[in-house]
Design a protein around this nucleic acid. Sequence first.
DNA 1: AGAATAGTGTCTTTCAGACACTATCAT
DNA 2: ATGATAGTGTCTGAAAGACACTATTCT
Lengths: 256, 256
Amino acid sequence: MTEDAFLTAYDPSAFERPAVTVDLVLMGLREGRPAVLLVRRAEHPHAGRWALPGSFVGLDETLDTAAVRVLREKAGFFPAEAAGAHLEQLYTFGALDRDPRMRIVTVAYLALLPEAAVTRALESEAGLSAAILDVPWAGEAGGPVAAFAEGDRNRTKPLSLAFDHAEILALAILRLRGKLDYSDIGFALLPEAFTLRQLQDVYEAILGMSLNKPAFRRRMLDRGWLAPTGAREAGTSFRPAELYRFQKTALIPLRP
Amino acid sequence: MTEDAFLTAYDPSAFERPAVTVDLVLMGLREGRPAVLLVRRAEHPHAGRWALPGSFVGLDETLDTAAVRVLREKAGFFPAEAAGAHLEQLYTFGALDRDPRMRIVTVAYLALLPEAAVTRALESEAGLSAAILDVPWAGEAGGPVAAFAEGDRNRTKPLSLAFDHAEILALAILRLRGKLDYSDIGFALLPEAFTLRQLQDVYEAILGMSLNKPAFRRRMLDRGWLAPTGAREAGTSFRPAELYRFQKTALIPLRP
DNA sequence: AGAATAGTGTCTTTCAGACACTATCAT
DNA sequence: ATGATAGTGTCTGAAAGACACTATTCT
C-alpha cells in the first residue's frame, strides 16, 4: 500500500474529538496600571460574567491565525495593529468540565498592546471593557489575580470571570513577569517613543514592586536595546525626560 | 431561557473540528549524554521514520491524563513510574499541513526520566529506541537538534523525524535549558541519590558547555535543595564522592 | 527663585569565574 | 607511595542595591 493509497482510504472522522478554541489575554496599560480587555458574556453559559475574547479554531486556519482573527474581529484591532502586536502562545487548557456545553480544549494566547491601541480598541468595540489588575508581588510562584472594573476606584468587588479564565489570567501574569527581565516584552506595552521613567513604571506595574532607579537605568542602557531619539517629552511642568526608541541590536551578546 | 435549557438545546457537533493529540518528548540520559525515546513508524504516513510517542486525546480524559496514558501504554512505564515522572506541557502545534491525513492539533509534553527508568522502558517496550542528541551551545536562541541512533558512534547519519517532531524536539531542548538554572528539573534526570559531579554532568550535557566546578558546587549547595545522605558512591577506583538527595526546602527564599 | 523630576557618581555587597591548593580513597 | 578525583580557600571582576548628589526644565 502506498502512502497515497493509505491517505485516500483513511477515515478522518473515525473518533469523536474535542472542540478547539483560542482565548486571548489582551494585556495593556490604563493610566500606568496593568489591565486586561474582557467581554461581558451575553449568552449562556456564564451569562453576565466576564470572559477573555476567543473563538473556535476553523479547519482552514492555524492556531496563530485564529488568534490574530480574534484580535481583529472581537477586539476591534485594525489588521495593521493586529499584525504588529506582540502575540505569543501561553498554554493549552483541557480540563474535562471547563465548558458545560461540551468538551473544549482551548489554546490561550497572550497579546501585549500599547496604551494607545487599548484606548482605540475600547472606543471602537462596544462589547469590550478594560479591567484593572491587582498584581501584588506574591513570590515567584505568583498568586491569584484580581480584576476590577475601571470605574471601581476602591477595588472592592473583583469581577467574576467565566470558565477557567481566572486561571488563564493568572498564568499570563506569571509569564509576563518571568519574561520581563530577559526579553523585550516590556517594550510591547509602550508607545514608539518613551522615557526611561515610563519603562520603569511598566516594570514596576507588572512586577508589583518598586525598583531602584540608577540600577534600572544602567541595566536598560547597557543592554543596548535603547536608541535615544534626541527629542524630549512634552507637557510636563518640570524637567522633561529624554525619549528613547526600542531598537534590538543585531549583535546579541552571547555567553562565551 | 435558563442556562439548563440552553445547554440541552445546544448542538455540540455544529462545526467541523480539528483532531487533538498529545506527543511526548521523553528525555533522559544514556551514558551521560542527553537522549530521547522514539518509536519507528510502521505505517503511513511517514512510514520508517522516527516519531515521538503520542496518542489521540479522548473525550473522557484531560490533556495531562492522555499524556500519562501515553507514558504507560506507548513508553512502557509502570503506573508508579508514570505518576512520579516530571511531566510538563511544552507547546501546542497547529500548522495546517503537519499531518497529511487530516487536520491535527497536537499538544506537546516534555517528560524527564531518570537513567534507570529509560533503561527499563527500552527493555520492556520493543518498539522503543533511544536516540542520542547532539546539542552544542548555539546561543540562547538554540539551534537545530540532531538525533542519532545509539549504535551510530560516529554520528554521521542524523535520524529523520516524522511530521514536525524535529521542531518539537528543538523546543524541548530550549525549554530544558531555560528552566535548568531556576527550577529543579535537573534533578528529574538523576537517580534518588547522586553526586555533585553527576549533577554537573547533567547540566553540562544539557547546556552543551562546560561549567566551573567550585562555582557550580557553591550555587547548588547554597540553594539548600541538597541533603547529604551520609553515604558515598561505590565502585570507583579513586576517592568516592559524597551522595546527595534532592530535597526542596519548605522555605523558598523570596525577593523582599 | 523655587519646585519637581531627570539623570549621575560612588560606595558597598553579592556572586560568578578562575586557579591553585588540600583531602581522601583505591590500588 | 601513587594516581586520580573530591572538595575548598581565595583572589578578581562584573553587576546590582542604596544613597546622595548634581542638572535641567517649567512656572
